[in-house]
Nucleic acid binder design. Structure first.
Length: 715
DNA sequence: CTAGGGTTAG
């Protein structure tokens, strides 16, 4: 049972009241003096009591009394400052500190470390400089606090200067606290070499010093070195703790090194620190990055009270492993358990919604972004721009973009890409051209996005010009995707020779690149080049059915039916199954999927009635079925029937059946490219029904309105 | 009376 001390203020008030009565006062003092030997000890015990009750008011009373009795000298004065700090008022402590006639190095250290601990690094450094000027030598305690202050403020040169002083005073590596603070500072500045040099000189390395290095390498992308340092530590007989595990597991995940990850997992269990939240979270992340998402889920189940970071790590892991649906389920569960999401969480949830093109879900998360004040956060912002871009709402994307306070390369890329996939080439170019004025340098993704924008809008010259500039800019490394985009741009505009020449420039051409060229050949009926390219492609990927299909389509589109038959038998021999064309719509959060000629939908009869009706009406307006898009050797009537029941037409008919509100935009999705005949059909349909239709195909968005499409019939 | 290291992102 703790002894209950009398409240100090009451004690002192009676002390004051008795002041005129000398006898009483003396008695009172004598009481204390009998157990204490001096005023110093008397005040020390009073101060101790203040700290015990954490009462700043009592500290003030003692201070007043000490001043009155003229008893503020070295050790008691320092104790008073310490009491001020412990009672939670750094400003009061500072005031006392400044008034002290003499200051011990300990109290300098206490003040400095309190400032650092309260994120007031500027003040900490101010005091450090003042102490050096006053001729007080910093000691090992001073340095272990002050390096962190330089680190917090990013003051590299000042930190190096303090390092120099520590060397002069012989304190650099003689104390492992100083050394690890110093190493941490260099690590956070990204100067791994400087940090490593300091660490190497420490004789008695401990777990903190090693962990600092492990964290440094891990966070700066050198996971192999992190693992090497970790092994070194274990070999040296030093046991890892929860801090070490939290970091090294992330490195195992980054290296996709499951076997080491499992070994470390075992070590963590043995050491008993596997229950610490951060190391558990890293374990979860390690399994997710190694692709073992079920193990992540198992780790997650082990948490009694998952926190914000834990939930977020799980959601991030799920999205990474293509489990977007489950990611959103977990996200909703997290919100229901009153865990506040942060911008990491929300951007991941938004990413999940974008991948699934779930615009309503995304909009709800947008509302949460606003609710939690993250509207202007660059991460949440970029995720929102991606969402709206992927869902075909460039206006919303732009409005999010315009509200951002800070625009970085990634948010810029998201916006340019959003314009690109929706066919707003000029807008994309305008942003791209304005980057210089904003001080933003384009990166690989920027270039790919802007080239895609040119490609999707037929801005051939602009695209070529940008490509030429980038070829001479060695800061940007062109990938096969950049080339594929240019090949598509040149090829589709009919500049096939240039496109083929460009393919030949690529050192490691991939299947997609050849396929792009062949598609262009198909568009322009260039059978010879297509055959040339197909041979190259088959050398590269002999079993690739996609190239066979493509070549078959080239023959079909040019009417070479004998070759088509030959190709089809080859395909049969390969047992290749074509990825069937499919369209879908989202009605009340339920996805309805359609294949060509699909009769499986429960409302199939009504859908077909709607379809007949629409087609009859568009024919009156001038729609003529374009049978060139039927790649089978059928007679004209059968070709027309085949076109009539394309999946996108079924999806639109169903969507119309389900929503009579004229203001609602109809959105459909298709896994392959939209066919030319359907494209024309949809344009006419928007005229007939007076509504907007947005179609996302495998490559881009088409915004159909009043008989026109945003792609300008170029896709 | 004073000191050092960790987990989630496009």
């Amino acid at each position: 049972m703790a002894v209950r001390l009398p409240r100090l203020s009451n004690l002192l008030i009676s002390f004051e009241m008795n002041l005129p009565r000398r006898l009483s006062q003396l008695n009172y003092l004598n009481n204390f003096m009998s157990s204490s030997q001096s005023f110093t000890e008397f005040y020390s015990s009073l101060i101790q009591q203040c700290i015990h009750t954490r009462s700043l008011m009592d500290v003030g009373i003692v201070q007043t009394h000490m001043i009155k009795s003229g008893c503020i000298h070295l050790s008691v004065g320092n104790k008073l400052v310490d009491a001020g700090l412990k009672c939670g008022s750094i400003s009061y402590a500072r005031k006392l500190f400044d008034e002290l006639p003499e200051r011990h190095v300990v109290i300098w250290n206490s003040m400095i470390s309190s400032y650092v601990g309260r994120k007031k690094s500027k003040e900490a450094i101010g005091l450090y400089e003042k102490m050096v000027l006053d001729g007080v030598f910093p000691d090992e305690f001073t340095f272990s606090s002050v390096f962190k202050a330089f680190c917090n403020l990013g003051l590299v040169n000042e930190g190096r200067r303090a390092h120099g002083l520590a060397v002069v005073l012989g304190l650099e590596v003689s104390n492992v606290f100083v050394a690890s603070a110093l190493v941490d500072m260099y690590v956070k500045f990204g100067r791994m070499k400087d940090g490593r040099l300091v660490a190497n000189r420490v004789v008695d390395k401990d777990v903190v010093l090693f962990t600092t290095l492990v964290v440094g390498y891990s966070q700066h992308g050198d996971d192999g070195e992190a693992l090497a340092v970790f092994r070194n530590m274990i070999k040296g007989g030093i046991k890892a703790n929860e801090y070490t595990f939290a970091s090294i597991l992330i490195s195992c995940g980054n290296l996709d090194d499951l076997s080491n990850g499992k070994v470390v997992h075992g070590l963590a269990i043995k050491s008993g620190s596997e229950l610490a939240v951060a190391s558990q979270t890293s374990l979860l992340t390690m399994y997710a990055r190694c692709g073992l998402i079920d193990d992540s889920l198992r780790v997650f189940k082990g948490f009694l009270n998952p926190n914000q970071v834990t939930w977020t790590s799980l959601i991030v892991g799920l999205v990474r492993n293509g489990r977007e649906e489950l990611a959103l389920t977990k996200f909703r569960k997290m919100i229901r358990s009153s865990i506040v999401p942060n911008s990491f969480t929300l951007s991941s949830a938004l990413q999940a919604s974008s991948s699934l093109a779930m615009i309503d879900e995304g909009k709800q998360i947008h509302a949460m972004v606003t609710k939690f004040g993250l509207d202007r956060d660059i991460y949440a912002g970029a995720a929102l721009i991606n969402l709206y871009g992927k869902c075909g709402s460039t206006e919303m994307a732009r409005s999010v973009f315009d509200d951002l306070i800070e625009i970085d390369v990634v948010s810029m890329n998201s916006m340019i890409y959003g314009y690109a996939q929706n066919g707003f080439g000029h807008e994309a170019l305008q942003l791209f051209n304005g980057m210089k004025d904003l001080g933003l340098g384009p990166n690989e993704v920027t270039i790919l996005s802007v080239l895609l924008a040119c490609n999707n809008s037929g801005l051939v010259q602009e695209g070529c010009q940008i490509f030429a500039t980038v070829t001479n800019n060695h800061n940007i490394e062109l990938t096969v995707d950049h080339y594929a985009c240019m090949v598509d741009l040149l090829g589709r505009s009919g500049r096939l020779q240039e496109a083929e020449a460009l393919v030949k420039q690529v050192r490691n051409p991939d299947v997609v690149l050849w396929r792009t060229l062949i598609s262009a050949c198909k568009l322009h009926g260039e059978i010879e080049m297509a055959e040339r390219a197909s041979n190259k492609m088959l050398e590269l990927a002999p079993g690739d059915g996609g190239s066979h299909i493509l070549l078959t389509n080239v023959y079909a589109s040019t009417g070479n039916w004998s070759q088509v038959i030959g190709m089809k038998s080859t395909l049969r021999d390969m047992k290749f199954k074509k990825n069937p064309a499919m369209s879908w719509v989202d009605v009340d959060r339920e996805v309805h999927t359609f294949m060509a000629g699909d009769l499986s939908h429960p409302r199939s009869r009504e859908i077909n009635e709607m379809l007949e009706n629409l087609t009859d009406r568009v024919k009156i307006l001038g729609y003529i079925p374009d049978t060139r898009f039927v790649l089978q050797d059928l007679d004209e009537e059968h070709k027309e029937r085949s076109l009539h029941s394309h999946s996108e037409k079924l999806a639109i008919s169903f969507a119309l059946l389900m929503s009579s509100n004229k203001d609602t935009v109809i959105r459909i999705y298709k896994n392959l490219r939209v066919c030319g005949d359907c494209h024309s059909w949809i344009k006419f349909v928007t005229k007939v029904i007076g509504r907007e239709i947005i179609a996302r195909d495998a490559k881009r968005f088409h915004h159909f309105k009043d008989g026109f499409c945003s792609c300008g019939d170029y896709w």
